[in-house]
Amino acid sequence: MILIDSISTFGEYLLLMKRVMSRPERWRIFFRQMLHEMFQLGVNSIPIVLLISFFIGAVICIQLKLNIESPWMPKMVVGYSTREILILEFSSSIMCLILAGKVGSNITSEIGTMRVTQQIDALEIMGVNSASFLILPKISALISMIPILVIFSIAAGTAGAFAIGKFTGIMTPEDLTIGLQYEFNQWFIWCSVIKSVAFAFIITSVSSFYGYRVTGGSLEVGKASTNAVVSCSALILFADMILTQLLMQ
């Protein structure tokens, strides 16, 4: 029964995506909405991304210093490991999990409220493809903003590691710099960006799907928001596993 429900839900999701991926009725309005969403979903997320990444960068640095310190271990290992963790996992996957909570619930509640207050019906009556009109600008906006958020996150995490080294004295900025520069592989940055683009699609499309199919009232909108965040998180982790295998081979 659960399997049949899951397949049915996935089918509904694909049908919705088919409607979403259609040519916008008016490009001018589409770009206006996309700009608005880039600000709402992207620019408004910059403070939380910077804040969380800064502290996580610092915490990673402390943990590595405390747990792998050994006379046999070169000092630059802390910087090297901090960089790899930030680039390969934190700034793409974990940051997108955080964004699934912030952006995903926002999208579901916005579209869900439009559904229960008949605003979506009003669009349909006018002859507007409501799925494409509401969801496509959100998907395009987050996909175009996510690489910037990833870069900001990597930068803020690195700054956090530097700050903790400088202000607590657990390691010198020079050792950290050597580690951060050691055998730097540019492809890892691309991996991070590619993964985050896929996660951005998951966050926006899945949360929009949950919002779009809400029936009932405010209670159902709340439940849909929770379900959207849970589903996005699970799907991000699942996609992370597959993408990591594909990209890092």
């Binding site: 207050t117 008949q118 605003q119 019906d121 009003a122 009556i125 006018m126 002859g127």
Partner: peptide, 15 residues
């Protein structure tokens, strides 16, 4: 549908 106008029970204006 562009020939149709509709007034919904709760107005359904875009917030």
């Amino acid at each position: 549908r562009r020939e149709i106008g509709m007034l919904f029970q709760n107005a359904a204006l875009f917030d």
